[in-house]
Nucleic acid binder design. Structure first.
Lengths: 241, 241
DNA sequence: TTCGCTATAATGTCAGACAAGTAGAAATCC
DNA sequence: GGATTTCTACTTGTCTGACATTATAGCGAA
Protein backbone atom coordinates (compact mmCIF):
# COMPACT_ATOMS: atom_id res chain seq x y z
CA UNK A 1 0.00 0.00 0.00
CA UNK A 2 1.17 3.46 -0.83
CA UNK A 3 2.56 5.33 2.15
CA UNK A 4 0.19 8.11 3.12
CA UNK A 5 1.45 11.42 4.37
CA UNK A 6 0.56 11.99 7.98
CA UNK A 7 -2.75 13.68 8.62
CA UNK A 8 -1.77 15.16 11.92
CA UNK A 9 -0.22 13.82 15.06
CA UNK A 10 -3.42 12.21 16.31
CA UNK A 11 -3.75 10.22 13.14
CA UNK A 12 -0.12 9.16 13.37
CA UNK A 13 -0.69 8.05 16.94
CA UNK A 14 -3.52 5.82 15.73
CA UNK A 15 -1.30 4.43 12.97
CA UNK A 16 1.33 3.47 15.54
CA UNK A 17 -1.32 1.71 17.63
CA UNK A 18 -2.42 -0.11 14.49
CA UNK A 19 1.18 -1.17 13.84
CA UNK A 20 1.40 -2.51 17.40
CA UNK A 21 -1.82 -4.44 16.87
CA UNK A 22 -0.87 -5.78 13.44
CA UNK A 23 2.50 -7.00 14.71
CA UNK A 24 0.80 -8.70 17.63
CA UNK A 25 3.10 -7.04 20.12
CA UNK A 26 2.81 -8.05 23.76
CA UNK A 27 3.83 -6.32 26.99
CA UNK A 28 7.62 -6.18 27.10
CA UNK A 29 8.03 -6.44 23.32
CA UNK A 30 10.20 -3.92 21.56
CA UNK A 31 8.78 -1.48 19.05
CA UNK A 32 10.47 -0.77 15.73
CA UNK A 33 13.11 1.95 16.05
CA UNK A 34 12.39 5.59 15.30
CA UNK A 35 14.26 5.30 12.04
CA UNK A 36 12.21 2.31 10.96
CA UNK A 37 8.97 4.05 11.82
CA UNK A 38 9.88 7.29 10.07
CA UNK A 39 10.42 5.27 6.89
CA UNK A 40 7.26 3.24 7.38
CA UNK A 41 4.98 6.21 7.98
CA UNK A 42 6.87 8.61 5.72
CA UNK A 43 7.19 11.32 8.35
CA UNK A 44 10.09 13.14 9.93
CA UNK A 45 11.65 12.10 13.21
CA UNK A 46 10.40 15.13 15.20
CA UNK A 47 6.88 14.50 13.93
CA UNK A 48 7.08 10.81 14.82
CA UNK A 49 8.43 11.62 18.27
CA UNK A 50 5.48 13.89 18.95
CA UNK A 51 3.09 11.01 18.30
CA UNK A 52 5.22 8.61 20.35
CA UNK A 53 5.22 10.97 23.31
CA UNK A 54 1.44 10.83 23.37
CA UNK A 55 1.56 7.06 23.68
CA UNK A 56 4.16 7.30 26.40
CA UNK A 57 1.94 9.71 28.30
CA UNK A 58 -0.90 7.20 28.00
CA UNK A 59 1.39 4.53 29.49
CA UNK A 60 0.98 2.46 26.32
CA UNK A 61 4.71 2.39 25.59
CA UNK A 62 7.83 3.31 27.51
CA UNK A 63 11.09 4.70 26.11
CA UNK A 64 14.57 3.65 27.26
CA UNK A 65 17.37 5.85 25.99
CA UNK A 66 19.91 3.74 24.12
CA UNK A 67 17.71 0.63 24.17
CA UNK A 68 14.45 1.30 22.37
CA UNK A 69 10.76 1.56 23.09
CA UNK A 70 8.73 -1.21 24.64
CA UNK A 71 5.07 -2.04 25.05
CA UNK A 72 4.03 -1.44 28.63
CA UNK A 73 1.20 -2.83 30.74
CA UNK A 74 -0.89 0.19 29.91
CA UNK A 75 -1.18 -1.13 26.38
CA UNK A 76 -3.54 -3.81 27.58
CA UNK A 77 -5.60 -1.38 29.60
CA UNK A 78 -7.65 -0.07 26.75
CA UNK A 79 -11.42 -0.04 27.03
CA UNK A 80 -13.58 0.61 24.04
CA UNK A 81 -16.16 2.61 25.93
CA UNK A 82 -14.84 3.97 29.23
CA UNK A 83 -16.99 5.99 31.57
CA UNK A 84 -14.69 8.91 30.80
CA UNK A 85 -15.81 9.07 27.18
CA UNK A 86 -18.27 11.89 26.66
CA UNK A 87 -21.61 10.72 25.28
CA UNK A 88 -25.26 11.41 25.88
CA UNK A 89 -27.62 9.03 27.66
CA UNK A 90 -29.51 8.69 24.38
CA UNK A 91 -26.30 7.57 22.71
CA UNK A 92 -25.50 5.13 25.52
CA UNK A 93 -28.93 3.57 25.14
CA UNK A 94 -28.56 3.09 21.39
CA UNK A 95 -26.58 -0.04 22.13
CA UNK A 96 -29.17 -1.47 24.51
CA UNK A 97 -30.37 -4.88 23.46
CA UNK A 98 -33.99 -3.73 23.28
CA UNK A 99 -35.57 -0.70 21.68
CA UNK A 100 -35.52 2.12 24.18
CA UNK A 101 -38.27 4.69 24.34
CA UNK A 102 -38.31 8.06 26.01
CA UNK A 103 -41.25 9.33 28.02
CA UNK A 104 -41.23 13.03 28.86
CA UNK A 105 -42.56 13.12 32.41
CA UNK A 106 -42.31 16.84 32.85
CA UNK A 107 -41.19 20.07 31.29
CA UNK A 108 -41.06 23.57 32.71
CA UNK A 109 -39.20 26.81 33.29
CA UNK A 110 -37.77 27.01 36.77
CA UNK A 111 -35.55 29.36 38.71
CA UNK A 112 -31.98 28.24 39.32
CA UNK A 113 -31.50 27.17 42.93
CA UNK A 114 -28.17 26.94 44.73
CA UNK A 115 -27.25 23.58 43.20
CA UNK A 116 -28.19 24.32 39.63
CA UNK A 117 -26.83 27.86 39.71
CA UNK A 118 -23.46 26.60 40.91
CA UNK A 119 -23.36 23.83 38.34
CA UNK A 120 -24.32 26.08 35.41
CA UNK A 121 -22.44 29.15 36.60
CA UNK A 122 -25.52 31.39 36.59
CA UNK A 123 -27.14 33.52 39.26
CA UNK A 124 -29.67 31.99 41.64
CA UNK A 125 -33.09 32.74 40.15
CA UNK A 126 -31.91 32.62 36.54
CA UNK A 127 -34.60 30.95 34.39
CA UNK A 128 -33.72 27.38 33.41
CA UNK A 129 -35.48 24.86 31.25
CA UNK A 130 -36.03 21.73 33.35
CA UNK A 131 -36.84 18.44 31.62
CA UNK A 132 -37.83 15.24 33.38
CA UNK A 133 -37.67 12.03 31.35
CA UNK A 134 -37.76 8.29 31.68
CA UNK A 135 -36.04 5.89 29.30
CA UNK A 136 -37.57 2.44 29.28
CA UNK A 137 -37.53 -0.74 27.26
CA UNK A 138 -40.28 -3.35 27.36
CA UNK A 139 -41.93 -1.83 30.42
CA UNK A 140 -38.59 -1.89 32.27
CA UNK A 141 -37.47 1.52 33.42
CA UNK A 142 -33.81 2.07 32.57
CA UNK A 143 -32.81 5.67 33.19
CA UNK A 144 -34.63 8.41 35.01
CA UNK A 145 -33.19 11.82 34.01
CA UNK A 146 -33.43 15.41 35.09
CA UNK A 147 -31.82 18.04 32.87
CA UNK A 148 -31.49 21.77 33.38
CA UNK A 149 -30.54 24.07 30.49
CA UNK A 150 -30.21 27.88 30.76
CA UNK A 151 -33.25 29.36 29.03
CA UNK A 152 -31.23 32.20 27.54
CA UNK A 153 -29.48 29.68 25.28
CA UNK A 154 -32.73 29.41 23.30
CA UNK A 155 -32.51 33.01 22.20
CA UNK A 156 -34.63 32.46 19.10
CA UNK A 157 -36.64 29.37 19.75
CA UNK A 158 -39.46 28.52 22.13
CA UNK A 159 -38.29 25.68 24.40
CA UNK A 160 -41.83 24.38 24.75
CA UNK A 161 -41.94 23.71 20.99
CA UNK A 162 -38.93 21.39 21.16
CA UNK A 163 -39.32 17.65 20.97
CA UNK A 164 -37.69 16.68 24.26
CA UNK A 165 -37.82 12.98 23.50
CA UNK A 166 -34.63 13.24 21.53
CA UNK A 167 -31.03 13.75 22.56
CA UNK A 168 -30.49 17.09 24.27
CA UNK A 169 -26.84 16.94 23.25
CA UNK A 170 -27.86 16.65 19.58
CA UNK A 171 -30.46 19.38 19.92
CA UNK A 172 -27.95 21.80 21.39
CA UNK A 173 -25.47 20.90 18.65
CA UNK A 174 -28.00 22.22 16.16
CA UNK A 175 -28.04 25.51 18.06
CA UNK A 176 -24.25 25.72 17.63
CA UNK A 177 -23.85 24.82 21.28
CA UNK A 178 -22.33 21.41 20.83
CA UNK A 179 -21.49 19.91 24.23
CA UNK A 180 -18.09 18.19 24.02
CA UNK A 181 -17.00 17.49 27.60
CA UNK A 182 -18.28 17.31 31.13
CA UNK A 183 -17.36 17.01 34.74
CA UNK A 184 -19.24 14.27 36.55
CA UNK A 185 -19.83 12.73 39.96
CA UNK A 186 -21.10 9.17 40.31
CA UNK A 187 -22.65 7.49 43.31
CA UNK A 188 -24.96 4.65 44.25
CA UNK A 189 -28.34 5.74 45.54
CA UNK A 190 -32.07 5.01 45.42
CA UNK A 191 -34.51 7.00 43.35
CA UNK A 192 -36.14 9.78 45.38
CA UNK A 193 -39.26 8.49 47.13
CA UNK A 194 -41.42 11.09 45.43
CA UNK A 195 -40.27 9.91 42.00
CA UNK A 196 -40.92 6.26 42.89
CA UNK A 197 -44.42 7.10 44.09
CA UNK A 198 -45.45 9.40 41.26
CA UNK A 199 -44.17 7.22 38.43
CA UNK A 200 -44.66 3.72 39.72
CA UNK A 201 -40.97 2.84 39.77
CA UNK A 202 -41.08 0.56 42.81
CA UNK A 203 -38.92 -2.15 41.22
CA UNK A 204 -36.13 0.15 39.96
CA UNK A 205 -33.69 -1.00 42.64
CA UNK A 206 -30.40 0.73 43.37
CA UNK A 207 -29.47 3.46 40.88
CA UNK A 208 -26.11 4.49 39.44
CA UNK A 209 -26.49 8.26 39.63
CA UNK A 210 -24.28 10.40 37.41
CA UNK A 211 -24.56 14.10 38.09
CA UNK A 212 -22.75 16.05 35.41
CA UNK A 213 -22.22 19.49 33.90
CA UNK A 214 -21.66 19.64 30.14
CA UNK A 215 -19.48 22.22 28.39
CA UNK A 216 -19.08 23.47 24.85
CA UNK A 217 -15.71 23.95 23.17
CA UNK A 218 -15.76 27.54 24.35
CA UNK A 219 -16.30 26.46 27.93
CA UNK A 220 -19.95 27.48 28.16
CA UNK A 221 -21.93 25.33 30.57
CA UNK A 222 -25.00 24.21 28.71
CA UNK A 223 -26.49 21.24 30.58
CA UNK A 224 -26.67 20.17 34.19
CA UNK A 225 -27.97 16.61 34.37
CA UNK A 226 -28.87 14.03 36.97
CA UNK A 227 -29.15 10.60 35.38
CA UNK A 228 -30.26 7.67 37.52
CA UNK A 229 -29.24 4.49 35.71
CA UNK A 230 -30.95 1.28 36.83
CA UNK A 231 -28.17 -0.56 38.65
CA UNK A 232 -29.12 -3.99 37.35
CA UNK A 233 -29.05 -2.80 33.72
CA UNK A 234 -25.80 -0.83 33.50
CA UNK A 235 -22.12 -1.20 34.21
CA UNK A 236 -19.47 1.40 33.54
CA UNK A 237 -15.87 0.59 32.69
CA UNK A 238 -12.71 2.58 33.13
CA UNK A 239 -8.98 2.25 33.53
CA UNK A 240 -7.18 3.37 36.67
CA UNK A 241 -3.57 4.54 36.53
CA UNK B 1 15.19 32.91 38.48
CA UNK B 2 17.72 31.11 36.37
CA UNK B 3 16.23 29.21 33.47
CA UNK B 4 16.47 25.51 34.14
CA UNK B 5 17.13 23.04 31.36
CA UNK B 6 14.18 20.81 30.76
CA UNK B 7 14.07 17.59 32.76
CA UNK B 8 12.08 15.69 30.27
CA UNK B 9 8.90 16.29 28.36
CA UNK B 10 6.60 15.56 31.32
CA UNK B 11 8.31 18.14 33.42
CA UNK B 12 8.09 20.65 30.60
CA UNK B 13 4.38 19.92 30.29
CA UNK B 14 3.98 20.76 33.98
CA UNK B 15 5.98 23.97 33.51
CA UNK B 16 3.63 25.04 30.73
CA UNK B 17 0.62 24.36 32.96
CA UNK B 18 2.29 26.45 35.64
CA UNK B 19 2.82 29.26 33.15
CA UNK B 20 -0.88 29.12 32.25
CA UNK B 21 -1.80 29.28 35.91
CA UNK B 22 0.65 32.06 36.76
CA UNK B 23 -0.60 34.19 33.87
CA UNK B 24 -4.18 33.64 34.97
CA UNK B 25 -5.20 32.51 31.50
CA UNK B 26 -8.87 31.83 30.88
CA UNK B 27 -10.64 29.73 28.25
CA UNK B 28 -10.16 31.42 24.89
CA UNK B 29 -7.00 33.26 25.93
CA UNK B 30 -3.96 32.96 23.71
CA UNK B 31 -0.80 31.26 24.91
CA UNK B 32 2.63 32.78 24.32
CA UNK B 33 4.03 31.78 20.92
CA UNK B 34 6.34 28.82 20.47
CA UNK B 35 9.26 31.19 20.05
CA UNK B 36 8.44 32.97 23.29
CA UNK B 37 8.12 29.70 25.18
CA UNK B 38 11.35 28.23 23.79
CA UNK B 39 13.13 31.26 25.16
CA UNK B 40 11.32 31.17 28.48
CA UNK B 41 11.94 27.47 29.14
CA UNK B 42 15.33 27.36 27.40
CA UNK B 43 14.46 24.40 25.21
CA UNK B 44 14.38 23.76 21.48
CA UNK B 45 11.25 24.13 19.40
CA UNK B 46 10.83 20.40 18.67
CA UNK B 47 11.13 19.62 22.40
CA UNK B 48 8.61 22.31 23.29
CA UNK B 49 6.20 21.05 20.64
CA UNK B 50 6.32 17.55 22.12
CA UNK B 51 5.16 18.92 25.47
CA UNK B 52 2.52 21.09 23.82
CA UNK B 53 1.11 18.12 21.92
CA UNK B 54 0.48 16.36 25.24
CA UNK B 55 -1.60 19.29 26.42
CA UNK B 56 -3.48 19.36 23.12
CA UNK B 57 -4.26 15.67 23.48
CA UNK B 58 -5.60 16.38 26.97
CA UNK B 59 -7.86 19.07 25.50
CA UNK B 60 -6.20 21.67 27.70
CA UNK B 61 -5.09 23.80 24.75
CA UNK B 62 -5.87 23.88 21.06
CA UNK B 63 -3.55 24.89 18.23
CA UNK B 64 -4.58 26.97 15.22
CA UNK B 65 -2.05 27.05 12.40
CA UNK B 66 -1.16 30.66 11.57
CA UNK B 67 -2.97 32.01 14.64
CA UNK B 68 -1.55 30.59 17.84
CA UNK B 69 -2.52 28.32 20.72
CA UNK B 70 -5.49 28.95 22.96
CA UNK B 71 -6.74 27.68 26.28
CA UNK B 72 -9.66 25.37 25.70
CA UNK B 73 -12.53 24.26 27.92
CA UNK B 74 -10.62 21.16 28.87
CA UNK B 75 -8.30 23.34 30.90
CA UNK B 76 -11.03 23.85 33.46
CA UNK B 77 -11.92 20.17 33.58
CA UNK B 78 -9.29 19.11 36.03
CA UNK B 79 -10.25 17.03 39.03
CA UNK B 80 -7.84 16.46 41.86
CA UNK B 81 -8.96 12.90 42.53
CA UNK B 82 -10.76 11.33 39.60
CA UNK B 83 -12.11 7.82 39.70
CA UNK B 84 -9.49 7.00 37.06
CA UNK B 85 -6.62 7.58 39.45
CA UNK B 86 -5.24 4.31 40.70
CA UNK B 87 -5.33 4.00 44.48
CA UNK B 88 -6.19 1.37 47.04
CA UNK B 89 -9.35 1.38 49.13
CA UNK B 90 -7.15 1.84 52.20
CA UNK B 91 -5.69 4.96 50.61
CA UNK B 92 -9.17 6.27 49.66
CA UNK B 93 -10.31 5.86 53.25
CA UNK B 94 -7.34 7.77 54.65
CA UNK B 95 -9.18 10.97 53.84
CA UNK B 96 -12.41 9.87 55.51
CA UNK B 97 -13.49 12.31 58.19
CA UNK B 98 -13.47 9.60 60.86
CA UNK B 99 -10.88 7.03 61.77
CA UNK B 100 -11.54 3.94 59.68
CA UNK B 101 -10.90 0.47 60.99
CA UNK B 102 -10.57 -2.76 59.13
CA UNK B 103 -12.19 -5.99 60.28
CA UNK B 104 -10.98 -9.18 58.61
CA UNK B 105 -14.15 -11.20 58.22
CA UNK B 106 -12.58 -14.13 56.47
CA UNK B 107 -9.39 -15.52 55.01
CA UNK B 108 -8.71 -18.67 53.08
CA UNK B 109 -7.20 -20.45 50.13
CA UNK B 110 -9.72 -21.15 47.42
CA UNK B 111 -9.70 -22.53 43.90
CA UNK B 112 -10.08 -20.03 41.08
CA UNK B 113 -13.57 -20.25 39.55
CA UNK B 114 -14.53 -19.01 36.10
CA UNK B 115 -14.81 -15.36 37.18
CA UNK B 116 -11.62 -15.14 39.20
CA UNK B 117 -9.59 -17.24 36.75
CA UNK B 118 -10.61 -14.95 33.88
CA UNK B 119 -9.85 -11.82 35.86
CA UNK B 120 -6.44 -13.01 37.08
CA UNK B 121 -5.52 -14.87 33.89
CA UNK B 122 -4.94 -18.18 35.68
CA UNK B 123 -6.38 -21.64 35.17
CA UNK B 124 -9.63 -22.60 36.83
CA UNK B 125 -8.67 -24.42 40.04
CA UNK B 126 -5.49 -22.40 40.61
CA UNK B 127 -5.09 -21.70 44.35
CA UNK B 128 -5.94 -18.13 45.29
CA UNK B 129 -5.76 -16.29 48.57
CA UNK B 130 -9.24 -14.88 49.29
CA UNK B 131 -9.64 -12.11 51.85
CA UNK B 132 -12.97 -10.75 53.08
CA UNK B 133 -12.88 -7.45 54.93
CA UNK B 134 -15.09 -4.70 56.21
CA UNK B 135 -14.00 -1.09 56.63
CA UNK B 136 -16.04 0.83 59.15
CA UNK B 137 -15.97 4.05 61.10
CA UNK B 138 -17.95 4.63 64.29
CA UNK B 139 -20.02 1.50 63.83
CA UNK B 140 -20.97 2.61 60.30
CA UNK B 141 -19.95 0.10 57.68
CA UNK B 142 -18.24 1.86 54.77
CA UNK B 143 -16.72 -0.65 52.38
CA UNK B 144 -17.20 -4.37 52.16
CA UNK B 145 -14.33 -5.93 50.17
CA UNK B 146 -13.43 -9.24 48.64
CA UNK B 147 -9.92 -9.69 47.28
CA UNK B 148 -8.35 -12.58 45.44
CA UNK B 149 -4.58 -12.85 45.04
CA UNK B 150 -2.79 -15.75 43.28
CA UNK B 151 -1.16 -17.85 46.00
CA UNK B 152 1.93 -18.48 43.92
CA UNK B 153 2.85 -14.81 44.31
CA UNK B 154 3.74 -15.56 47.93
CA UNK B 155 6.56 -17.86 46.94
CA UNK B 156 8.46 -17.36 50.16
CA UNK B 157 5.91 -16.27 52.70
CA UNK B 158 2.94 -17.92 54.35
CA UNK B 159 -0.18 -15.94 53.47
CA UNK B 160 -1.82 -16.85 56.75
CA UNK B 161 0.94 -15.02 58.63
CA UNK B 162 0.19 -11.75 56.88
CA UNK B 163 -1.65 -8.95 58.63
CA UNK B 164 -4.57 -8.54 56.23
CA UNK B 165 -5.86 -5.45 57.98
CA UNK B 166 -3.46 -3.28 56.04
CA UNK B 167 -3.34 -2.22 52.42
CA UNK B 168 -2.93 -5.16 50.05
CA UNK B 169 -1.44 -2.80 47.48
CA UNK B 170 1.26 -1.79 49.97
CA UNK B 171 1.87 -5.36 51.06
CA UNK B 172 2.37 -6.48 47.45
CA UNK B 173 4.67 -3.53 46.84
CA UNK B 174 6.95 -4.98 49.53
CA UNK B 175 7.04 -8.23 47.58
CA UNK B 176 8.24 -6.29 44.51
CA UNK B 177 4.80 -6.72 43.00
CA UNK B 178 3.73 -3.09 43.10
CA UNK B 179 0.29 -2.71 41.52
CA UNK B 180 0.26 0.45 39.38
CA UNK B 181 -2.89 0.26 37.23
CA UNK B 182 -6.19 -1.54 36.91
CA UNK B 183 -9.18 -2.10 34.74
CA UNK B 184 -12.46 -1.60 36.56
CA UNK B 185 -16.19 -1.91 36.18
CA UNK B 186 -18.57 0.08 38.36
CA UNK B 187 -22.25 -0.47 38.99
CA UNK B 188 -24.93 0.24 41.57
CA UNK B 189 -26.10 -2.84 43.45
CA UNK B 190 -27.09 -4.14 46.88
CA UNK B 191 -24.85 -6.20 49.09
CA UNK B 192 -25.45 -9.93 48.60
CA UNK B 193 -28.15 -11.18 50.98
CA UNK B 194 -25.82 -13.70 52.56
CA UNK B 195 -23.37 -10.97 53.45
CA UNK B 196 -26.09 -8.76 54.92
CA UNK B 197 -27.36 -11.64 57.05
CA UNK B 198 -24.02 -12.94 58.28
CA UNK B 199 -22.51 -9.58 59.15
CA UNK B 200 -25.48 -7.54 60.29
CA UNK B 201 -25.26 -5.00 57.48
CA UNK B 202 -28.98 -4.37 57.11
CA UNK B 203 -28.62 -0.58 56.95
CA UNK B 204 -25.85 -0.49 54.32
CA UNK B 205 -28.22 0.68 51.56
CA UNK B 206 -27.27 0.79 47.88
CA UNK B 207 -23.61 0.02 47.19
CA UNK B 208 -21.25 1.46 44.60
CA UNK B 209 -19.54 -1.73 43.48
CA UNK B 210 -16.14 -1.47 41.80
CA UNK B 211 -14.88 -4.74 40.41
CA UNK B 212 -11.29 -4.37 39.32
CA UNK B 213 -8.15 -6.25 38.28
CA UNK B 214 -4.84 -4.73 39.32
CA UNK B 215 -1.63 -4.98 37.29
CA UNK B 216 2.05 -4.49 37.96
CA UNK B 217 4.34 -2.51 35.63
CA UNK B 218 5.20 -5.77 33.89
CA UNK B 219 1.54 -6.47 33.28
CA UNK B 220 1.17 -9.23 35.89
CA UNK B 221 -2.31 -9.44 37.32
CA UNK B 222 -1.95 -9.48 41.08
CA UNK B 223 -5.33 -8.62 42.61
CA UNK B 224 -8.91 -9.16 41.65
CA UNK B 225 -11.14 -7.10 43.92
CA UNK B 226 -14.83 -6.50 44.52
CA UNK B 227 -15.31 -3.40 46.62
CA UNK B 228 -18.82 -2.45 47.73
CA UNK B 229 -18.75 1.21 48.77
CA UNK B 230 -21.64 2.43 50.86
CA UNK B 231 -23.58 4.66 48.46
CA UNK B 232 -24.40 7.29 51.04
CA UNK B 233 -20.75 7.70 52.04
CA UNK B 234 -18.93 7.91 48.70
CA UNK B 235 -18.99 9.83 45.48
CA UNK B 236 -16.58 9.39 42.60
CA UNK B 237 -15.58 12.20 40.22
CA UNK B 238 -14.30 12.12 36.68
CA UNK B 239 -14.08 14.14 33.51
CA UNK B 240 -15.74 13.07 30.31
CA UNK B 241 -14.35 14.09 26.93
C1' DT C 1 -14.86 52.61 1.67
C1' DT C 2 -13.27 48.53 -0.44
C1' DC C 3 -9.98 45.57 -2.47
C1' DG C 4 -5.56 43.73 -3.34
C1' DC C 5 -0.96 43.15 -2.08
C1' DT C 6 2.83 42.67 1.08
C1' DA C 7 4.94 41.76 5.30
C1' DT C 8 4.76 39.63 9.57
C1' DA C 9 3.40 36.21 12.86
C1' DA C 10 2.46 31.62 14.06
C1' DT C 11 2.02 26.65 13.66
C1' DG C 12 3.27 22.24 10.85
C1' DT C 13 6.86 19.46 9.12
C1' DC C 14 11.42 18.39 7.65
C1' DA C 15 16.67 17.30 7.39
C1' DG C 16 20.81 16.96 9.57
C1' DA C 17 23.68 17.10 13.58
C1' DC C 18 25.38 16.02 18.13
C1' DA C 19 24.78 14.10 23.08
C1' DA C 20 23.90 10.29 25.96
C1' DG C 21 22.90 5.49 26.90
C1' DT C 22 23.07 0.55 25.76
C1' DA C 23 24.45 -3.89 23.81
C1' DG C 24 27.36 -6.88 21.51
C1' DA C 25 31.55 -8.15 19.19
C1' DA C 26 36.41 -8.00 18.94
C1' DA C 27 40.83 -7.32 20.91
C1' DT C 28 43.84 -7.58 24.75
C1' DC C 29 45.61 -9.22 29.07
C1' DC C 30 46.52 -12.57 32.65
C1' DG D 1 40.86 -20.31 28.13
C1' DG D 2 38.58 -16.93 30.76
C1' DA D 3 38.15 -12.21 32.19
C1' DT D 4 38.45 -7.49 31.10
C1' DT D 5 38.67 -3.63 28.18
C1' DT D 6 37.83 -1.28 24.00
C1' DC D 7 35.39 -0.32 19.96
C1' DT D 8 31.44 -0.15 17.01
C1' DA D 9 26.76 0.12 15.96
C1' DC D 10 22.23 1.03 17.38
C1' DT D 11 18.81 3.77 19.76
C1' DT D 12 16.66 7.62 22.12
C1' DG D 13 17.14 12.74 23.66
C1' DT D 14 17.74 17.32 22.16
C1' DC D 15 19.15 20.86 19.14
C1' DT D 16 19.61 24.21 14.96
C1' DG D 17 18.12 25.84 10.80
C1' DA D 18 15.02 25.67 7.05
C1' DC D 19 10.78 25.57 4.39
C1' DA D 20 5.48 24.96 3.93
C1' DT D 21 1.08 26.47 5.19
C1' DT D 22 -2.26 29.38 7.38
C1' DA D 23 -3.82 33.68 9.28
C1' DT D 24 -3.76 38.54 10.07
C1' DA D 25 -2.46 43.37 10.09
C1' DG D 26 -1.26 47.33 7.62
C1' DC D 27 -0.83 50.14 3.65
C1' DG D 28 -1.75 51.99 -0.80
C1' DA D 29 -4.60 52.38 -4.84
C1' DA D 30 -9.05 52.54 -6.98
Amino acid sequence: MEQVKSRGISHLRESILELIRDNGLRVGDKLPSEMEMTERFNVSRPTLREALKLLEMDAVIEARQGKGRFLSAGAALSIARPITKFESVSRLLESHKHVVETKVLGFGIVHADTDTSAALDVDVGTPLVRVERLRHAKREALVYSLDWIPQHLFSEGDPSQIDWKGSIVNMLAQLNLQPVASTAIATATMLPDAVVGLHGLTDFGPAFLIEETCFTVAGTRVIFARDYHRGSAFTFSFVRK
